[in-house]
Lab assay of single mutants.
Amino acid sequence: ALNRGDKVRIKRTESYWYGDVGTVASVEKSGILYPVIVRFDRVNYNGFSGSASGVNTNNFAENELELVQAAA
Results as ranks from 00 to 15, higher is better:
K11L: 15
A71N: 10
A61I: 04
P35I: 13
V27Y: 07
F60M: 01
D6Y: 02
G47Y: 06
F40I: 03
N59H: 11
T13A: 13
G31E: 13
V27M: 06
K29F: 07
A52H: 12
E64D: 05
N63Y: 14
E64C: 03
E14F: 05
V55F: 09
Y18E: 04
V27T: 04
R39E: 13
F40D: 00
G31M: 10
I32D: 14
I32L: 09
N46Y: 06
S30P: 09
S49Y: 11
V24F: 03
I10R: 02
Y18W: 05
N44E: 11
D41Y: 06
A70D: 08
G31P: 11
E28T: 08
G50C: 12
K11C: 10
I10H: 02
A1V: 13
E62V: 15
R39K: 13
V43C: 15
G50A: 09
R42W: 06
K11H: 10
A52R: 02
V43R: 04
R4S: 09
G5F: 04
R42C: 10
F40R: 00
Q69P: 09
E64I: 01
V36D: 00
Y45E: 15
D41H: 09
V55W: 06
A71I: 11
F60Y: 07
K7G: 00
Y34K: 12
V38D: 00
L33I: 08
V27H: 06
N3G: 13
S53A: 12
E66L: 05
S53Y: 10
I32R: 08
N46M: 09
N3V: 11
V8P: 01
D41G: 05
N58E: 15
L67R: 04
T57F: 13
V24H: 01
G22W: 05
D6E: 01
F48D: 15
Y34P: 04
N58G: 15
V27R: 02
N3H: 13
E14L: 07
N63V: 09
S49I: 14
R42H: 09
T57H: 12
Y18C: 04
G19E: 06
V68S: 01
N59S: 13
V55D: 08
V27Q: 01
N58D: 15
F48A: 15
E14W: 08
V38R: 00
Y16I: 05
A1S: 12
V36P: 00
Y34L: 10
G19A: 05
V27G: 00
A1M: 10
T23P: 00
S26W: 12
N56L: 06
G5I: 00
A61P: 01
I32P: 05
A70G: 07
V38Q: 00
N3D: 06
N46V: 06
N56M: 07
N56V: 07
T13C: 11
E14Y: 08
G22F: 02
G5H: 04
N44C: 15
A25Y: 10
V43D: 09
A61W: 05
E62P: 10
A70M: 09
L67S: 02
G50R: 00
A25M: 15
Y18P: 00
S49P: 15
A52T: 13
G47P: 15
V8S: 02
R9G: 04
K11F: 04
N3Y: 10
V27K: 03
I10V: 14
G54K: 06
L2I: 10
G22A: 03
A61D: 06
N56F: 08
E66M: 05
V36Y: 13
I10S: 01
